[in-house]
Amino acid sequence: MFKWVTLMRPLTILRLALLALPLCAPAQTAPKAENKFVGSAVCKTCHPDVWLNFNKNPHFRSIASGKEEPAKTGCEGCHGPGGNHVAAGGGKPTIRAFSQMSPDQALNTCLECHSKDVARGFVRASAHTEADVVCNSCHSIHKSQSPKFLLAKQQTQLCYSCHAGVRAQFDMPVKHRVNEGSVQCTDCHNPHGSAAPTWKTGTSSAMLAPAHDNEMPCLKCHVDKRGPFVFEHASVRVEGCDNCHMPHGSTNAKLLRRPVVFTLCLECHNGAGTFGRQNAGVITQSATHNMLDPKYQRCTLCHVRLHGSNVDPMFLR
């Protein structure tokens, strides 16, 4: 039978006090066993599904080399020392689990090793990072669907999962062949961020991956539009290709922003204001060009070299 007097015994009080101690003292003040590295071989005991295929994972190289320090080797290279995790018999609180990390923490963990490439030099300033889209938003280390880059999905589908509006553009009749597998998003974009562009006003990069000498990425493939030309079409160089073209897809021929070319040309070539390379308006069409004549409605029939010409300032040849 329970007796209240039992509680008042000194030994019992001491026992209760010891039991209550963890409730009073913050966890960090309690003496904590050192969290030791245990090695990846221990991890596979409980995680055989991960380990079985890990030799095909790029991160396996850290194990294969045998030269890396424990903090950069195998499982514990990313998840931290596993000593406490093993001692506790598992559980996410005892290990660096990416599913429990904030985006900042995940980014910092990956950049401990992956910051040495030029392509990731601007990752902390990228629009993806700003939107909390960090490494493990796109990469899946253990369930990747691509041997290269360990992407969580095929690249196109991965990008589409957030950019449905862009997908709609690639489904249009005139488009770059992304869905057909011929072009990839990363041909033009660097999802890890990029430096300020050298065209437009240089303030909005759209994470474009610049071409050969910091030009628009379009010129990686469309090399004949690159020049240098004697007569540059100034708007191409100053404002960029997307001044006239929709780079992803369009319902219009040649990915143009308008279905017919004369409206596109005349919206700039109207002589108004302080625009243009002479800061006095972009020149109007010639008075000999009667817009009722179908020939003059198709500007590019005569101005065939409108991206730039070496021969003619009007881009006629």
């Binding site: 008075a287 060009h289 009667n290 817009m291 009722l292």
Partner: peptide, 11 residues
């Protein structure tokens, strides 16, 4: 805004 030449018989 646009500025162009058109008309018949002379633009």
């Amino acid at each position: 805004g646009i500025d162009f030449f058109a008309g018949s018989p002379r633009s």
